[in-house]
């Protein structure tokens, strides 16, 4: 009896460590008073470690809102939202900022810093983790750019890179500090189908190597094949 009980306990613990994001009865609103509009309705969702999940849905269905909530870019309003086991409901701004350091973001627009080279852009992400020395940070940035196939473009400014190359730098930046989770918002929207698929392939391959969870928000049907699981959002409801 006792053995059974402790077994169940271990299972639960393993289970907890496996869960990256746990969302229970999450609602979200924009605006105040009469203009208050509900965007997300009663969302329940769990993302597990190492999973590649695609979130699709028409524009205005609340995809981005859900993504920014999971990414600790917005404060949760009601329900429960746990990221890496930490409750985000009512979390302080400082805690939100801290959580962000363990999440890699890939934006629709690459959002690289124009004044920094590809290598420096990637390095900016590692510098948030003081355990790496500058030379280590540099090495890792170079290694990561090699991994995304840009080893010969280290000292290029974003201005001189193609759309696909910029997005690959953005992926390197998101992955270089081994985040627990990657959030990508329409990463292929501004790319042609070939480079779009290359970018997603690289992202998936590297994230698998690192064991990171990936959530891709997209309505690009060409990349659905990389997903372990596809979820759909419509008018604020998960279907």
């Amino acid at each position: 009896m006792q053995t059974l009980f402790s077994n169940a306990d271990t299972n639960e613990k393993e289970n907890l460590e496996n869960v990256m994001v746990a969302i229970r009865n999450l609602n979200h609103f924009y605006g105040e008073g009469a203009l208050k509009k509900q965007i997300l309705f009663d969302i329940n969702l769990t993302l597990n470690k190492g999973e590649v999940v695609i979130l699709k849905g028409p524009s205005g269905s609340g995809k981005t809102t859900l993504l920014t909530l999971m990414g600790a870019l917005r404060s949760a309003q009601s329900g429960s939202l746990q990221v890496f086991g930490k409750e985000m409901m009512g979390a302080k701004k400082r805690e939100l900022v801290k959580i962000r350091r363990f999440i890699g973001y890939i934006f629709q627009a690459h959002n690289l810093l124009e004044c920094l080279t590809a290598r420096q852009n990637v390095q900016m992400s590692i510098e948030l983790h003081p355990e790496y020395s500058t030379s280590q940070a540099k090495e890792r940035a170079i290694a990561m750019l090699n991994a995304v196939g840009l080893g010969d473009h280290l000292d290029y400014y974003p201005h001189n890179l193609s759309g696909g190359q910029k997005q690959r730098v953005a992926i390197a930046r998101a992955l270089v500090s081994h985040p627990k989770m990657i959030l990508a918002d329409e990463p292929t929207a501004s790319l042609d189908s070939k480079s779009g698929h290359d970018v997603v392939d690289i992202m998936q391959r590297l994230a698998k190597e690192q064991g990171s969870t990936i959530l891709i928000v997209t309505h690009d049907n060409r990349i659905l094949d990389v997903a372990d699981r596809i979820i759909e959002l419509e008018d604020g409801y998960l279907i």
């Binding site: 870019l73 900022v97 962000r100 973001y105 627009a109 959002n111 900016m124 992400s125 948030l128």
Partner: peptide
Amino acid sequence: DHLPEYATLKAMGYG
């Protein structure tokens, strides 16, 4: 001019 870049830095975890 750099607002989107600064916002990106904030998203990455810069305070």
